[in-house]
């Protein structure tokens, strides 16, 4: 595959090449997916070294286990699954879990165009607003389990709280969201 073909190739094709030992395909996958992975992991762990190591481990896992991709779903989602679990693994190695979540409530300085506001609310209904009104503790649980696709156990490791607490917070979050959306 030459450079042009590589740029055009689908992620799935690139993975197949990687499974075959093609380092250039790995490079292309890295260029496509490392930036968002780094950003997304940074939004879950403030320690840049931990994020760096997690991303490195992730792409090593991609290099070695490219044949493990079963063809279902986006390659990006597959990579995320690996990445977030590597992050959890890294956090377990640290003596204390690092600050898990950047807390933010929205930025007054960012002015959304009217169109964007409409589009976002079409995508998520009032869920966005409702979500933003949850306390950080509840919000982080929702993010971990619903958006990041983690199990209760994994979420508890990522957030540094007991699994039971994850479950109770999830229940409370559901009650609050239902209340807000009603």
């Amino acid at each position: 595959m030459d450079t042009g073909a590589r740029r055009q190739a689908t992620d799935a094709d690139l993975l197949a090449s990687v499974a075959d030992g093609d380092r250039l395909a790995l490079r292309e996958l890295y260029e496509r997916h490392a930036p968002w992975l780094v950003a997304r992991l940074r939004h879950r762990c403030a320690d840049p070294t931990v994020v760096h190591d997690s991303v490195q481990d992730t792409f090593m896992a991609v290099w070695k286990g490219a044949s493990g991709y079963d063809g279902r779903g986006d390659v990006a989602a597959w990579i995320w699954g690996i990445g977030v679990r590597r992050l959890i693994g890294q956090l377990r190695k640290s003596p204390r879990p690092t600050v898990p979540l950047l807390d933010h409530h929205g930025d007054e300085a960012l002015l959304l165009s009217a169109e964007e506001q409409v589009l976002i609310s079409v995508e998520h209904g009032d869920l966005a607003g409702a979500l933003n009104q949850l306390s950080p503790e509840l919000r982080s649980v929702v993010q971990a389990t619903v958006l990041d696709g983690l199990t209760t156990r994994e979420a508890s490791k990522l957030l540094g709280i007991p699994a039971g607490t994850v479950k109770t917070r999830m229940m409370r979050a559901r009650i609050e969201l239902r209340g807000s959306l009603a």
Partner: peptide
């Protein structure tokens, strides 16, 4: 890191499926 949680979550889900936006982020 200044984007609120809801829109961050929304963007992150979108990025899993959209190559153009991944490219823009890169």
């Amino acid at each position: 890191g200044r984007l609120d949680a809801a829109r961050s979550g929304s963007l992150e889900q979108h990025l899993l499926a959209c190559d153009d936006c991944r490219h823009a982020l890169a």
